Amino acid sequence: MQALPVDGNLECQTVWLSDVHLGSVHCKAEALLAFLDRLRCERIYLVGDIIDLWAMQRRVHWPESHNRVMRKLLKLSRQGVRITYIPGNHDQTLRDFCGSRFGNIRVRRQAIHTTSAGLRLLVTHGDELDYAVRYSRLNRIVGDAGYDLLMWVNRHINEVRERAGKPYWSLAKWVKVNLSQADRAIQAYQHAAINLARSRGVDGIVCGHLHHPVVQDYDGTLYCNDGDWVESCSALIEDAAGELCLVRALAPAGNTDELLIARGPTETRPGCSTGGTETALPAATG
């Protein structure tokens, strides 16, 4: 993935963001703010775990940058950007409000995004697919604790790397790529997502949850994971040319004034240059 500096704004049709984890010490809110400041789009899907209520039960970490993210999203909605919030497992309390609005932000359990080219994409956080990797409640608790430890170690490693002038390095990503058990779990999850999309009769699925950004075509059914804002700082976009691709926000040495946007190669069918429409699904689905 090659990083290219963005001169001015990032113009696109639709943006999918998930796993921001506001309220967690791991959230990279400043990078997200820099990304949102450059963003010019028609629609934003917030695909779950935007607010980390689980983390705040243990320890509240809410600096001013987290307030600024919330204010920025509200400002964009007032300016006419259509925002749909699909709660995840870390903000699942908000699922009680599915079908409601917070200002101009709609809350939905799931939605179907239809590009103007007719490509229909199921949009869901993705925690309902945990069964595919044989998660019990105990597994989830142990997994969350292990992930928190991994991120704690990762943060301190990168503090040392930053002082040495070296770029950010993700320990969690290294584990996912290099441990066969983790790779098998990711593959099982992706196949479960594809099966869900096919069962709904749609052309593909957009989700988050795994913190593992990827766009891949499985025999004509599209799997898109938009990543996260604790490690990858990534988003999925439908760009001005109507194509779906991943973008990654990078701030060298923490300097958000030098924000770079990295575009990743994808294996997608093209969307359309005139945006898309959304269909809400019943709150009881999924």
Rank of each mutant, 00 (worst) to 15 (best):
A3T: 07
A3S: 07
A3G: 09
L4V: 15
P5M: 07
G8F: 13
L10C: 04
E11L: 09
Q13M: 07
V15H: 00
W16D: 01
V20K: 03
V20C: 04
L22W: 05
K28V: 00
E30T: 08
A31C: 05
D37T: 06
R38K: 04
C41R: 11
C41L: 13
C41T: 15
I44Y: 03
I44A: 00
R58E: 11
V60K: 09
P63M: 12
E64M: 14
E64Q: 14
E64N: 07
H66T: 03
N67G: 01
V69Q: 07
L73V: 02
L74K: 09
L76E: 00
S77N: 00
G80Q: 13
V81Q: 11
N89A: 12
D96F: 11
C98F: 13
R101N: 08
F102T: 13
G103P: 08
N104D: 11
I105R: 00
A111Y: 05
I112D: 10
S116D: 10
S116R: 13
A117D: 10
V123N: 06
V123P: 08
D127I: 04
E128Y: 11
L129F: 05
D130P: 04
V133K: 04
S136I: 00
R137N: 02
R137P: 02
L138W: 15
I141N: 01
G143C: 06
D144P: 02
D144A: 12
G146F: 15
G146R: 09
G146Y: 13
L149W: 15
L150Y: 00
L150G: 07
M151W: 06
V153I: 15
V153W: 14
E159P: 00
E159H: 08
R161C: 03
R161W: 10
E162T: 06
E162R: 12
A164Y: 01
K166Q: 14
K176L: 11
V177N: 13
A182S: 06
R184W: 01
R184A: 07
A185I: 09
Y189E: 06
Y189N: 02
Y189A: 05
A193H: 09
L196C: 12
R198E: 15
R200M: 15
R200S: 01
D203S: 03
I205A: 01
I205F: 03
V206F: 06
G208L: 07
H212V: 00
H212K: 04
P213N: 02
D217K: 01
D219M: 02
D219P: 01
G220S: 09
T221C: 14
L222G: 02
Y223K: 01
D226K: 02
G227F: 01
G227C: 08
I237M: 12
E238K: 10
E238S: 13
A240Q: 08
A241C: 11
G242V: 09
E243F: 13
L244S: 03
L246P: 03
L246W: 11
V247I: 15
P252L: 04
A253H: 09
G254E: 03
N255C: 10
I261K: 11
A262M: 12
R263T: 10
P265R: 06
P265L: 15
T274R: 05
G276Q: 08
A283K: 13
A283S: 07
G286W: 05
